[in-house]
Simulated assay, not measured.
Amino acid sequence: MSEPQPQPHPLDAVAWPKRTERLVLRRAGEHDIDALWQHRGRDDVGEWLGWHPVDRADWEASMPARLPDTLVFELDGRIIGDVLVSVGSAWSQREVRDRAVGVQAELGWTMHPDFEGRGYASEAVREVIRVCFEELGLHRIQAGAFTPNEPSQKLMRRVGMRLESSSLRDALHRDHGWVDGVMYGLLAEEWRRQRDGRAPRATILHGFTASPEDHWFPWLAERLEAAGFEVRVPALPDAQDPDADAWQAAASDAIGEIRDGDAVIGHSLGALAAVRVLAERARRAEGGAVDPADRLGSLVLVSGFAGPVEPIPELDRFAAAGVDLAGVPAVVRSIAVLRSDDDAIVPAADTDALAAALGVPVEVVPGGGHFLGREGWTKLPAALWPVLRTS
């Protein structure tokens, strides 16, 4: 029987180090234990921490297990503080528990008192928050504190977090007894509004002969608006006799400038229009790195295809040009491809080929047909969850 393989840590997916105006942030290692002790071992630093070492031996015995979640920040090569990033799951109902795994993080931080008052901790925490939302794709972050720890609360407010709850004598302090507590939080949507000055956008692209009012599009638009998105569902031109260039232009206009909180959902021919827009943007970016903030947050392709489809010869002219999918993953953070096991319009092999070219698995919805309104599909949660996972 094979041994279970260790799971990668969420922070392993990030390219370190990160550089801000004055600091360098990187993963902590065992070689940092002595340097971290220089401030972590101080009583004034440990006053309001949930865990503080009793002595140096306790520190050296306990700290190695905490290193995977720890980032250090350096000033001119010296470690002056650290940030804890503990990625975990959100509470959820049983049916969607798998979709709540690893979607949020709890943050904590310390800094050497000799460097207080110059904004270093705020600078480090802002960068960690950026990484959490732009690169890890988290939905939410939070941080708690004893209520008397006003400096920590001020930092939370400075970096854009808001007070979510306060509790009466719910936390037992080693010296002060029962103490009040506070919890601050920040959603990805809120952070992106602060960064971009606008709400995240979701664009829904319908398919051949369809319109924005058909199938599950109105339901999805309503659910996305409730989640804080600005939703666009354009009527693509001449849906009964579509022209590839006209659809790509209209889809591109609707999608607009891409930011990492945005989403595009395409159904059938709308999926082909979506990937053509993104392929063109990837082509323009060729040779240059795409900033994480300039990637599309989520792309959801429902009953999609990337070339001619045998049951729909009317679309041969539209689909004949195909699409170069190679660059699309570089401009999208998360891609989901959905199909059913009984689609009479787009063969499963065509959707599977699209997913394979994009390097993602296919999610199969049993008995879904082509996900049409006349088949009973007036809502489609499977198209909503991938967007909410990265928003």
Rank of each mutant, 00 (worst) to 15 (best):
Q248Y: 00
Q248T: 14
D253F: 03
D253E: 15
I255K: 08
E257W: 05
E257G: 00
E257C: 00
R259P: 00
G261F: 12
G261Y: 14
A263S: 08
A263K: 03
V264H: 06
I265S: 01
H267S: 07
S268I: 08
A271R: 08
A271S: 15
A273E: 05
V275E: 02
V275Q: 09
V277I: 10
R281P: 00
R283N: 05
R283P: 00
R284M: 05
R284G: 01
R284C: 00
G287I: 14
G287N: 09
A289C: 02
P292I: 07
A293F: 10
A293K: 11
A293S: 15
D294L: 12
G297A: 07
L299M: 10
L299P: 08
V300N: 02
P308N: 11
P311A: 03
P311Y: 01
I312S: 03
P313N: 08
E314S: 14
D316C: 01
R317C: 02
F318N: 00
F318M: 04
F318T: 01
A319V: 08
A320K: 13
A320Q: 15
V323K: 13
V323F: 11
A326L: 06
V328M: 05
V331A: 04
S334F: 13
A336K: 01
L338V: 10
L338R: 09
R339M: 12
S340Q: 11
V346L: 09
A348F: 11
A349F: 09
T351P: 03
T351H: 07
T351Y: 02
A353F: 04
L354S: 06
L354E: 03
A356H: 09
A357D: 13
L358S: 03
V362G: 03
V365Q: 11
P366E: 08
H370Q: 09
H370M: 05
H370I: 03
G373R: 05
R374A: 06
R374D: 13
R374F: 15
G376W: 14
G376D: 11
W377T: 08
W377V: 13
P381V: 04
L384R: 06
P386T: 11
V387G: 01
